[in-house]
Design a protein around this nucleic acid. Structure first.
Lengths: 332, 332
DNA sequence: AACATTTCCACAAACGTTTGCAGTCATCGC
DNA sequence: GCGATGACTGCAAACGTTTGTGGAAATGTT
């Protein structure tokens, strides 16, 4: 028993033309109040719903936004998604979430899906290993607006919205370097990403500018397990060294904590820890982990504003930054 | 500069008909090897991509699956999504993720989106407060296959795939009741959900069957903060009472842990804790939280099998269950 | 009464694809 | 040399919608 209510069927029942039905349903001034009423009633009765395929074919674009992220298992993205969904809903659009599994190939498949479905716009946080920007260029060629957020490519012909990474690294240093430990370990993500480089730069610039005498080490990790291993390796080489650790993300922090637990070290006695986070995970531990807050929600709101600007025709490329602030916990 | 490669344009360039181009591109035996070659080459050159709207309009359905979950911030769902994505990709389908934000109204909006886009199939884990199943019935009326997973409605005209909840509750009791504490606290989710009722039933059945003498209390919570408050309330009424706590999910566990941290209680000395989990979160803490494992990944695989059966025409309704197993940590 | 305007509606083209059907050749068997 | 077969290819309808255009009444203006 298929749902077959269509403009044609309604028009047949009412002895009016298809176009009249179409216009009646969208309150076009050309149709009389009386027919409007009749059409709407019958449409309601027949449970009419416009066929999105036909509408989109005609209009050449759909009204759903896509969000492409490396992995949805990231608290930062949850609030981002929520913010975008709120705003999208407000203007009658929907949001579909696609994850690239940190695989450029999957990412490209997702982009293809977006192209085929002529999505209204795409918010994308790129993969650690994304190097080919051609698929993104392709999107712009067919006028699908693109906003990069959080993990953005270095290419600067794109619209990007990101955390003020340099500043948050700087802020992290500002607080972490007050910790007693004489050693400092930076556990960073993939060092090809601008997000990583800028956070590290912010941190080390503060470090050098204040002529900090602590011994500084930096390690890079692509995911939890690598972060854990990196920290284990560090402590294998620096046994019993009180160290202040800077973790640049939730994911990294999880790895760091696993290592710390493995080594049975105490926070904040043996180790001081400060991370950059959206704020959820750090509060789950004892003591709370101190963090520099980066709001995925705010980033989502900002990204959406950019998206609407682009959709509205503002074509100039821009990069926006979002400031962050410090939330002291008990890990320092 | 729009990407306009279309069958018509290709046909114009090659002086053949649209239909020939269409058939050539899909290796229809009716068209000669020579024209096939020419068409394919030009199509490649022009970067032709079929217009999904037109294809779908013609075929009356798209090739994307939808997954609707209350919230994506749930580790259990991540692996579920991953499993489904893997299998979908394998048969050339895509997956879109929609979250209902635990709001039945948003859930219905998402269902509407699925209907309008004539999605190939829907995997849905319902909201805590979903009572109206009419929108789901509507989906079936237009032949969109539906598989409920994890949080499933009680109505048994639907296809459902879920954790063997009773069994996992039973298993949890089996292990938790060996803990030294004389008091047992069950922190459960929304008690209208069958998942909650069955897990609780499994637990209490074991409890009664073994004539357990420990003092049993049960509280319900809809989200993290409620869980935290419930535990705080419990300990306000039972000061310094060594208690073994059963948490029925990751989310609940987070709330429980927050309360435990607030009260400065020690695990496993003062409190023993056992949760049901997908396995990620429990390992982030020290000591590791013991858990009964429910595999989202396996559930995803199973759900997909069901989905394909339904799509293949097997119409009979069934409910599948997935067994779980115990992973000891250091929290007991 | 003649003409202009408004109100309401229908026609038809277009969006890009798929597919049943029919048509045009050339080749083959006899 | 005639019908039959087979290999290609094109025509046209259909999917359901939107929208520019034009036309027939009804109303208004002088």
């Amino acid at each position: 028993m298929r749902n077959n209510a269509t403009l044609k069927k309604i028009s047949d029942h009412l002895n009016v033309s298809i176009s009249t039905v179409s216009r009646a349903l969208k309150d076009h001034p050309d149709v009389s109040p009386d027919t409007k009423k009749r059409v709407k009633e019958l449409a309601m009765l027949m449970d009419y719903e416009p066929n999105a395929f036909a509408v989109n074919l005609r209009k050449k674009h759909s009204n759903v936004f896509a969000i492409i992220v490396p992995e949805i298992s990231n608290f930062f993205y949850h609030s981002f998604v929520q913010a975008v969904e709120e705003d999208a809903r407000r203007i009658g659009y929907s949001v579909m979430i696609l994850q690239s599994m940190n695989d450029p190939e999957v990412e490209e498949q997702n982009l293809r899906l977006c192209r085929h479905n002529h999505v209204a716009g795409i918010f994308v946080s790129i993969t650690n290993r994304t190097t080919d920007i051609a698929p993104f260029k392709k999107l712009e060629a067919i006028d699908i607006p693109l906003v990069f957020f959080d993990k953005v490519p270095t290419d600067d012909t794109f619209n990007k919205v990101s955390i003020a990474d340099y500043e948050s690294g700087w802020m992290a240093a500002e607080h972490l370097l007050t910790a007693p430990a004489k050693h400092v370990l930076l556990v960073m993500g993939n060092n090809k990403l601008s997000i990583t480089r800028r956070r590290e730069e912010g941190f080390t610039d503060y470090y050098h500018k204040h002529q900090c005498k602590k011994k500084l080490a930096v390690v890079y990790a692509d995911h939890i397990e690598e972060a854990r291993q990196a920290v284990l390796d560090y402590f294998a080489a620096n046994k019993n060294t009180p160290t202040a650790i800077f973790s640049m993300s939730d994911e990294i922090m999880c790895g760091v904590l696993k290592a710390i637990h493995t080594l049975n070290l105490q926070i904040p006695k043996d180790i001081q820890l400060l991370t950059i986070s959206n704020g959820f995970l750090p509060t789950l531990f004892t003591p709370d982990i101190s963090f520099v807050k980066t709001s995925g929600y705010d980033l989502g709101k900002l990204s959406f504003v950019r998206m609407q600007e682009i959709m509205g025709g503002k074509k100039f490329v821009r990069e926006n930054f979002l400031t962050s602030s410090y939330y002291p916990g008990g890990s320092m």
